[in-house]
Structure formats: C-alpha cells, structure tokens
Amino acid sequence: MTRSTPTKPQANPGAKPRVIHPWPLRLTHWLNAVAVVMMIGSGWQIYDASPIFGFTFPPLITIGGWLGAAIAWHLAMMWLLVVNGLIYFLWSATTGHFRKIFPLSPRAFWHDLTAALTFNLKHEPGVYNAVQKLLYFGVLCAGVVIVLSGLAIWKPVQLWFLTDALGGFVIARYVHFFAMAAIAGFLFIHLLLVAMVPKVLPPMITGGRIEP
C-alpha cells in the first residue's frame, strides 16, 4: 500500500487581495505630514522672534518670513492637525487599527531594536515591529502634548487652567519646544527607516496589496 503525502492547502481562488494601508490611513498620514512640517517651520519663525535658548533657527528653514505670517500659518496648520488627528483617532478606534500598535513589550522592543541595528530586522507588509510601535506611540503622545501646550501659549488668559497645569506660560513654552523636538526626532528616524527599507513607501501612496 502506498502512503499518500499531504497536499499543500490551496489559496481560495475567490479571496480578494488585502489592502496594506486603507485610504483613510493614507489620507490622514499625508495630511499630518503636511501639517507637522508646516507647523515646525512656522514655529521656528515664531521662536526666533522671542528665543528661549541661546540660538535661533536660520531663516532659510523657517516658514512665514515674518512673525505675523508665521503665526497665521501656524494657527491654520494647527486646526488641520487637530481635525485630522481626531479623524485618525476615531477611525483607528472603530476599525481596530490601534491593535497593530498595542500591546508592546520591552522584550520585543529590545529584540527588534537589536535586529534593526544589525540590519537583520525582517519586515512584513502591514505589520509593525516593536520599534515602530514605540515610535508611533511616542509621537502620538508628543502630538497631544504639543497641541495642549500650544493652546496654553496661544490663549493663556482664556485657558488659564491649562496654562497653570503646565506650570505657567514660560514653562509651557519649554514643554511646547521639547514636544516639537520629539516630533522632529521622530520624523528624522521615520525617514531614515524608510530610506533603509524603501519598499514600505509605495504602499503608503497606493495602498499596496497582499495576496491571500
């Protein structure tokens, strides 16, 4: 009697390819990118008008040209960031997208960080590794802090309770600056990772497909 060998399961011919990045995620991602870059550039112009440290930013990398225009750009992009951020949070909460970021364990982070530093980190389309999870969680927290501290600086009288909670107007400026620095650092690392793994960029533009 001959022994039959198990056959490899066949893919469902009727199954449709899965989109890696749905359009709401792509849209909010790129709108956030525009808003954040514009806010950082205009924020540097505003900072230069009243520095809190012993340096200023070169005019070439600021946006607005002068204080009034920089404030106008900053406020316009603030509303884009807030509205777009709320849409992202609602979409992520209702679709389960946040499950891609949580849970996050220190052991998994250390494992993936070591693999990334030795260029041995494998990338699966649509799956976040532990390093990405921590970066995304961190930038989400920094985004909340920068909005709250920005409101405290913008309306210190009307929102006195928020300004007081942050330690006063001067301390709120420091909080706002360091939150900006955290977001700028995230952007640098994010672009560096994209440069290291360029195949992740096209799906964020087209959506990408994973065959069933």
Rank of each mutant, 00 (worst) to 15 (best):
H123V: 09
V175W: 08
V157E: 14
T5V: 14
A76P: 04
T56L: 01
L90K: 09
I101K: 11
A69L: 13
L187G: 09
I40T: 03
Q45M: 10
G65K: 04
P103N: 09
K155V: 11
L113E: 03
K100S: 13
Q132R: 10
F55G: 11
M1C: 12
A130D: 04
Y136A: 02
T56F: 01
G65T: 02
M77G: 03
V144R: 11
L75P: 00
L117A: 15
I71S: 03
H21Y: 15
A72Q: 14
I46S: 08
T95K: 14
Y136E: 07
A195H: 04
L134C: 03
K133F: 00
V170E: 13
G65V: 06
T94N: 07
N12C: 12
A69C: 04
P103F: 13
N129L: 05
A182L: 14
P203A: 06
S92Y: 12
H97W: 05
L60A: 15
R107T: 14
A184L: 09
A179W: 04
L113T: 05
R173K: 07
T206H: 03
A33F: 10
A116H: 09
Y88R: 15
A172E: 01
R26N: 02
A15G: 00
H29D: 03
A181V: 15
Q158F: 14
I101E: 11
F98P: 04
I40L: 02
V34H: 00
P103Q: 11
F137C: 12
P106L: 11
E211W: 05
A49N: 14
M78Y: 02
Y128V: 01
I61N: 00
G64S: 07
L201W: 05
L135R: 06
L117R: 15
S149D: 11
S50G: 14
G138E: 01
L67P: 06
E211P: 00
V147D: 01
L159N: 06
G138D: 12
L90I: 13
V139R: 04
A184S: 06
K100F: 13
A116M: 03
A49P: 12
L148Y: 00
H97R: 13
A195W: 03
R173M: 02
A182F: 10
A142N: 05
V194L: 07
I61L: 07
G96H: 12
S105I: 13
A93W: 15
T2L: 14
I52S: 09
A108M: 01
G41V: 06
M78F: 12
K8E: 15
A108E: 11
I61A: 08
A11F: 15
Y128H: 12
G68N: 13
W160E: 11
H111T: 10
Y174V: 05
Q45I: 07
L148N: 08
K100L: 08
V36F: 07
N120T: 03
K16N: 10
Y88I: 06
R99K: 13
T28C: 08
M204K: 02
R107P: 10
P58S: 04
F137H: 10
G150W: 03
P58Y: 05
W30R: 02
